[in-house]
Nucleic acid binder design. Structure first.
Length: 709
DNA sequence: TAGTTTTAAGTTTTT
DNA sequence: CTTAAAACTA
């Protein structure tokens, strides 16, 4: 579901009126209880966290300790009791899903919370950059590059190198930005000491500026740069936000920490919530030290621990804790299960991944067929795996047995060729300097524009400030007839759509019969562009499955645009949302969400979720934990295991296979190190014991001499 | 230049 | 095994 466009003025007006009414209604002592209702369900620590004020606050919230409840209650409290204007509150999350959930739950407690700025770090950065585009040297309608676009851009900047060779560099550039390191920073060697890297990074940056785009890292790094260099901007922002709340703080990287620091002024109330045991994004630059050292970085910090777990029955919590407590670098919490009793977790040894899948299928099927209190619904179940590729065997097994399922996150709607093409087309409109988008789309469908013709256009672009669209127009006379005709059609389509958007760019006359109907917003314009450029027909013809999937996907994309106004700003907003919210799903979602179905999901994606019954699969050395990871990286895998296990409320199952097809070929597997780390007696083992497979625990495992499991 | 065939490569996790 | 890039032919 595409997120709704920003709230309008009338919302704020309505809130103001409600606010006044509330004050009138609740002026007497007798109605006090109604006002404090939202505080009633809180335990003493949670309440303390909600009522806290003054110094910066670090809330160490264990898994299932009611973290979101505390944040949302705090938002309500700040508005109701502390009289902080809703628009002066900023709440930052890491995922769009978390942001949506927080917004929804906060609104349930306090209507005025709908005016609170609740965004992901990246979306906040994008908002800031659009407001301060000139200061950043950007057009307000800049485009946002994903990793793939960045790779294309880097291969333009280093044309003598192959894409595959550049791929690791793109990753490291992103990493450098996570650590707030510029090409000329002496600390850059911490990412990669080779001078190649510095050169490529610098070339990439220059090119990125020229095409008027930003990448994900820039959405954080560049705002921080502006705030550091221009104190008046920083102080204006500090004036605006009186309270800043951060969720999942353990996942913040260095640049995001810097952003927080820039937002933090003497009057700012800062509250971060996190759990060092759930830090699982180190590979993306997350710094556990951010949370470990928070009190030193923000002197006077108060710390509140939430250690009551309301989610899992105690055997599950004990199992999870017994593994994660092996980590060295942790603050150390003792989670106390509030739910006594419950079933013991089950470990199952399976011969291969097919058996693993059918084991899960049987398990689920049996539970659903049960009668009485133990009967489960499909939706109670989640199957967790380490990598998206593992979902396949479950999908086939579930399909065969008619078990309804839903795969979370791997849909990658936006990564489909036809969608990327359409987005490139739109990017060309929003930002004609976007060379990556232009190159992708100029010869699709085939317009007779080959390397030679493209080079001519790009030579022109050097003289037009990088404006590829204008360059194409100027190069027309220099192109061979076929290319000239093709490019002309392309340019006309763009111009016509630009006219739809208010015709800011030199467009032809606006045709009244094509005028955009008010209710349809951008979508008519998008649909027409896809049609006029021939992209829709091209993909309909190229649809291998023959089911018109691609045409349908393009239609869905156009439909999704209807929420946005038919203006250039609307277009930029639409593109931004698609680029930042990868969970963008096809409109069947409502129907889909209501369906009773098993959830197939990566462990990373489960953060913040909970399920009555959870199966963790693929618990083998090399898969989970992944390659032979050591030290910090192994600790992160361990935390990942912890996150997965603590998603379970009532029942937890663990699966490990002896054989697995890896990269096409079958491989013999050994059980995951983590299975050996589980405290003895914390689970029931079914299926063949590992010794039947002649499998030994991972090398150097200390418990070896104490006997297996 | 377009489209097809061959060959190679490479597979975490996500904003 | 799947996907992507490179080479080749029409």
């Amino acid at each position: 579901m595409p997120p709704a466009p920003p709230a309008g003025y009338e919302n704020r007006l309505a809130c103001g009126i409600l606010n006044a009414m509330n004050t009138l209604l609740h002026s007497g002592e007798s109605v006090k209880s109604a006002e404090e209702d939202y505080l009633a369900p809180l335990n003493p620590e949670q309440l303390e966290a909600v009522l806290h004020s003054g110094h910066p606050l670090l809330i160490l919230a264990g898994a299932g300790s009611g973290k979101t409840r505390v944040i949302t209650a705090k938002i309500a409290y700040l508005i109701k009791e502390r009289r902080i204007p809703p628009h002066a509150i900023l709440a930052v999350t890491f995922t769009n899903k978390a942001a949506r959930e927080m917004a929804e739950r906060a609104r349930d407690l306090e209507e005025r919370a709908s005016s609170v700025m609740i965004r992901t770090f990246h979306s906040f950065g994008a908002w800031f950059l659009r407001c301060n585009a000139e200061r950043a040297g950007l057009e307000p309608n800049f485009t946002i590059y994903d990793e793939d676009d960045s790779l294309s851009l880097l291969s333009l900047a280093a044309e003598n190198r192959e894409r595959s060779e550049l791929k690791p560099f793109v990753r490291r550039i992103a990493r450098a930005k996570d650590y707030f390191l510029s090409p000329d920073d002496p600390d850059l060697s911490r990412i990669d000491y080779r001078k190649d890297f510095k050169t490529l990074y610098a070339a990439y940056e220059e090119r990125l500026r020229r095409v008027g785009s930003v990448d994900f890292g820039d959405l954080i790094k560049r705002p921080v740069e502006i705030l550091k260099e221009q104190p008046e901007v920083a102080s204006r922002l500090r004036d605006r936000f009186h309270a800043v709340l951060v969720d999942e703080y353990q996942d913040a990287n260095v640049a995001q920490f810097e952003l927080l620091r820039a937002l933090f002024g003497p009057e700012t109330y800062l509250c971060v919530v996190g759990d060092d045991d759930q830090s699982i994004y180190r590979f993306r630059g997350a710094e556990v030290r951010n949370i470990l050292e928070f009190p030193e970085r923000f002197p006077g910090t108060d710390i509140i621990r939430l250690e009551r777990n309301y989610r899992s029955v105690s055997p599950i919590l004990h199992l999870a804790s017994s593994v994660v407590c092996r980590n060295q670098g942790r603050l150390g919490k003792t989670l106390v299960a509030q739910r006594e009793g419950g079933k013991q977790p089950v470990l199952s040894f399976l011969p291969d991944q097919e058996e693993e899948a059918s084991f899960c299928a049987r398990l689920i099927e049996n539970s659903v067929r049960q009668s009485g209190a133990r009967k489960a619904s499909y939706a109670d179940w989640a199957v967790l795996y380490r990598t998206n590729a593992q979902s396949l065997s479950f999908e086939t097994a579930f399909l065969r047995r008619r078990i309804p399922y839903r795969v979370v996150g791997s849909l990658k709607f936006y990564e489909r060729e036809e969608i990327k093409d359409a987005l490139s087309l739109l990017s060309c409109m929003a930002n004609p300097k976007d060379e990556v988008a232009f190159r992708r789309i100029i010869n699709k469908p085939a317009r007779g524009v080959g390397p030679a013709a493209l080079r001519r256009i790009m030579e022109e672009a050097d003289g037009t400030d990088g404006d590829t669209v204008a360059a194409a127009e100027r190069a027309l006379s220099n192109l061979p007839p076929k290319a000239r005709a093709g490019v002309t059609v392309f340019l006309k389509s763009l111009a016509a759509s630009a006219a739809d958007l208010g015709g800011r760019r030199d467009a032809g006359p606006r045709q009244s019969d094509w005028a955009v109907k008010a209710g349809d917003g951008l979508s008519v314009c998008v649909a027409r562009l896809l049609h006029n450029t021939g992209l829709a027909v091209y993909h309909a013809a190229n649809d291998e499955s023959g089911t018109n999937q691609r045409a349908g996907n393009l239609q869905e994309l156009a439909n999704a645009a209807s929420l946005y106004p038919a203006t250039f700003e609307g277009l930029a907003g639409f593109l931004e949302h698609i680029e930042l919210d990868r969970s963008f799903e096809i409109a069947r979602e409502e129907e889909d969400a209501a369906r009773d179905a098993v959830t197939l999901i990566t462990v990373h994606n489960t953060k913040g979720l909970e399920f009555p019954r959870v199966i963790m699969t693929g618990l083998e050395q090399g898969v989970f934990p992944r390659t032979d990871k050591r030290g910090e990286e192994l600790e992160e895998e361990r935390r990942l295991f912890y996150v997965g296990a603590t998603r379970a409320m009532d029942e937890l199952y663990l699966c490990t296979a002896a054989r697995r097809r890896l990269y096409g070929r079958p491989a013999f597997m050994r059980p995951s190190l983590f299975l050996y780390e589980i405290e003895q007696g914390r689970m029931r083992i079914i299926g063949d014991r590992p010794e039947c497979f002649g499998i030994l625990p991972p090398e150097g495992f200390p418990a070896l001499k104490d006997g297996l499991l």
